[in-house]
Design a binder for these strands. Structure first.
Lengths: 298, 298
DNA sequence: GGATGAGATTTGTCGGACAATAATTCCAAC
DNA sequence: GTTGGAATTATTGTCCGACAAATCTCATCC
């Protein structure tokens, strides 16, 4: 084998860049001892707290090796530490870097492949797929994008989806909603009013409100966009509460939407939602312009 | 172990239903001999031809065991042969039914889990997730749904997405499109005009046209809805060409959209697309009402 | 110069083993 | 009888080592 082989413990990008030790997920400090230490925080450099896009109730099965590895690689792909076209190390070497068996590493790769982010071929190896193939609407993938500081373009795209989806969904919800849907919206909005957006619970209620609207469309495909919408909301509300000293009260717009839906007026619901998303869009742009790169601070 | 144990070669649903031998994917007739026989058709009962939602050029890596198994189970879930809450057999038993190793079967399960369709827990086993958790916008999942006769509700939901996405996208494309985008749209439409929708190539050009519009929005999240839109188009055009003796010429609406986008008139593009989707919606409902259950015929 | 074949490298698959986890059962104590 | 807790046990999670299959590379031959 001629030519200088890449040193152990490194990832090699297509351009020849070397990512030093970029890939080691929470070394499993002695697999026999220390079962009690539930290391929640996987230390990925420069990440924000994991967004709660989907509430896993109690038994969080996130302790599985392959899930953690898939997440670790997925975040690095989202953060463009690993770029499309880059080749991952061979399975034996990669497994060693993560200190896991080849089996576990392979299952992680299967997860990433299922999300369109990598592609494996014999002899060729496993390489990062072109961005257009990523299943970027996949809840977990979106979560990985939010783990690092998302690009401005990504945040704008997220809001592009909101602007497209939510007014339409509000109109549909106005005509299609059931009693149960309305209850969910009402309860979510009441909790949001009670707890405000300063608390994580309050923000969760905000997301739940919007999710309830998508669900009320009666269209399960539209409802499947909830995580995407939630991601946009999560991002905005997080930074709004950080950057604005006196954030505008978002409740009036929300109740306007709810009331229009309750009284089954599609057009009014659409318009109210357009206005709500418009306000959120302004907040988002404010966050983008003012916040700079303070995003990664603990 | 008291009580009658489920016989070998069966899947057991939650209600106690037994699915006889429902799960055997293309038994790999002697893994040493007969490499030449590329068994393209996985024999799943009552399926239509696999839709070409994403064109895999040449090296179709579909020969992999875990992909086939994931696909087989995914289709059965989509077809509701396996229902949410149902428990899959244990890994050893399931692997035996597919005549593969536990490793290969497990990788298949990881794929399905990555798409939100199953959930594995120790001791509990692997069970089908509630429908709301399925990543139903995932291209492969949509493909699995189209493999069997989709429910009317699903087809309507697909069109609900078209009605929401495409007019908005057309308007965005009118303002955001680049020269390259316009070329792609024009070429696709010209091919469609030349080959008509009777040929698969012509239908592919139709899908390519709509995909180009989504891409021209410049929003990669909206663009990620291409497979969903394509699925709706695929379904309609397939049955329109079967059921209608003299299908209406779809080209005028298409060129109306293209011209509006080319001249950068968002509102006109939106309206033209509303009309186009409206026509398609009518065709879809016609197919649903007239075609009945002739769908699965070879 | 192009086609062809041998070799080497990488993923794909196999089989068996043990660990970790949690549902179940059973026993004991109240 | 009920409740609490410990032992049992079934199931997934992980590891290891080996071989098969595919295909890229390169040398060879026509």
């Amino acid at each position: 084998m001629p030519g200088p082989r890449v040193a152990h413990g490194t990832f090699c990008t297509e351009n020849g860049d070397i990512v030093q030790g970029a890939l080691h997920v929470a070394d499993r400090i002695g697999r026999n001892s220390a079962t009690a230490q539930n290391g929640q925080q996987d230390d990925v450099p420069g990440v924000m707290r994991p967004p709660v896009l989907r509430d896993r109730p109690a038994g969080a099965p996130s302790a599985r090796l392959h899930d953690n590895i898939a997440r670790g690689i997925g975040i690095r792909i989202a953060a463009e530490t690993l770029k499309p076209g880059d080749l991952l190390p061979g399975e034996i070497e990669a497994a060693e870097q993560f200190s896991v068996s080849r089996t576990a590493y392979r299952e992680a790769v299967r997860i990433l492949a299922a999300k369109g982010m990598v592609e494996s071929r014999t002899k060729t190896g496993t390489r990062i797929s072109p961005r257009a193939r990523w299943h970027i609407l996949d809840p977990e993938v979106i979560g990985w994008f939010l783990e690092t500081k998302p690009s401005e373009a990504f945040v704008r795209d997220l809001f592009g989806v909101r602007q497209m989806v939510e007014p339409h969904a509000a109109a549909l919800a106005a005509t299609h909603h059931t009693r149960r849907d309305l209850d969910a919206m009402t309860e979510a909005l009441d909790t949001m009013a009670r707890l405000q957006l300063a608390t994580e619970e309050g923000r969760a209620a905000d997301r739940a409100f919007h999710q309830a609207i998508l669900a009320a469309t009666g269209n399960e495909l539209i409802s499947a966009l909830s995580p995407t919408v939630a991601a946009a909301i999560w991002w905005t509300t997080l930074f709004k509460s950080r950057t604005q000293q006196e954030p505008r009260d978002p409740l009036p717009e929300h109740y306007a939407v709810l009331n229009a839906i309750r009284s089954r007026e599609p057009e009014r619901a659409r318009e109210a939602m357009v206005e709500l998303v418009g306000f959120a869009f302004d907040d988002m742009q404010l966050s983008l312009s003012t916040d700079g790169d303070r995003l990664t601070r603990g």
